[in-house]
Simulated scan of single mutants.
Amino acid sequence: MKYRYFLPILMFVLVAQSSCRKETPADGTGITDKIDASRITTTDALGNITHDIDPTDWTYDTTWAADERAVITNPLAAQLANMETGVVSIYPAYPNPLRDKVTFSFKNTRQSLLQIVIVDRFLQVKDRFFFTTTPGSSSFTFELDEEKYINNINYRMYYAFFSQADGLYYKGHGDLQVKR
């Protein structure tokens, strides 16, 4: 009679232990996700928010983990010549989900260097772009190559604004979903 609670307790412990283990990804790589890009801010072809909003997307990020910061390369001194610290406003990328192209729009009060890096959930760099921004509103459209970007997968776009005096002065991210 004193063992009647033993079996239920043993079952509870075994179930709790198995639910705490990290599972090996289905892709067989043994690598677990480094970022959570599962939520997006949905937008239409004109940039209007249409449904879901991820409040962490398309804003200023106060901190990045060390491996996130590592995807951003330090610009060369020549790239930073005449670049200034501005006031930046970011808009959600559109359309999102996207088929093959996405547009990133923002406002900046000064000429700055903008670096955009698109990564997968393992922080593997898919694309990197550098642009010199001009004061005012700007938009850049990127084509996401079918060979690099898998259908029905989410990716993260990091953006980093640099100036000659302050280096990296504005940073953030947004998650993108490819739907072909």
Rank of each mutant, 00 (worst) to 15 (best):
D100R: 08
D52I: 13
T63V: 13
N151A: 14
M83N: 08
I49C: 04
Y60S: 05
N152W: 11
A70I: 00
W58K: 04
N108M: 01
S139D: 08
D57R: 06
A81R: 14
L46Q: 11
D54W: 10
L114V: 05
L80A: 08
G167Q: 04
D36T: 03
N154I: 04
L144I: 08
F106M: 12
N151D: 15
A37Q: 06
L123W: 04
A65P: 05
K107W: 13
R39H: 13
D57T: 00
A93Y: 02
T41K: 08
L144R: 02
T62L: 15
I49L: 06
K107D: 15
G167K: 09
N74T: 14
A66W: 07
S138R: 08
L114W: 03
V88T: 04
Y60K: 13
F140K: 10
R99D: 14
L80V: 03
L113I: 03
E68Y: 14
L114T: 02
D44M: 03
T109M: 11
T59M: 05
L76G: 03
M83D: 06
Y155H: 03
D100M: 02
Y149M: 07
Y155E: 01
T109L: 10
P97K: 12
I150L: 12
N108I: 14
T62R: 15
A77F: 11
I116N: 07
T73F: 03
D166Q: 14
I72G: 01
Q111T: 13
V117A: 10
V88C: 05
D145R: 13
T132L: 09
D100Q: 11
A93N: 03
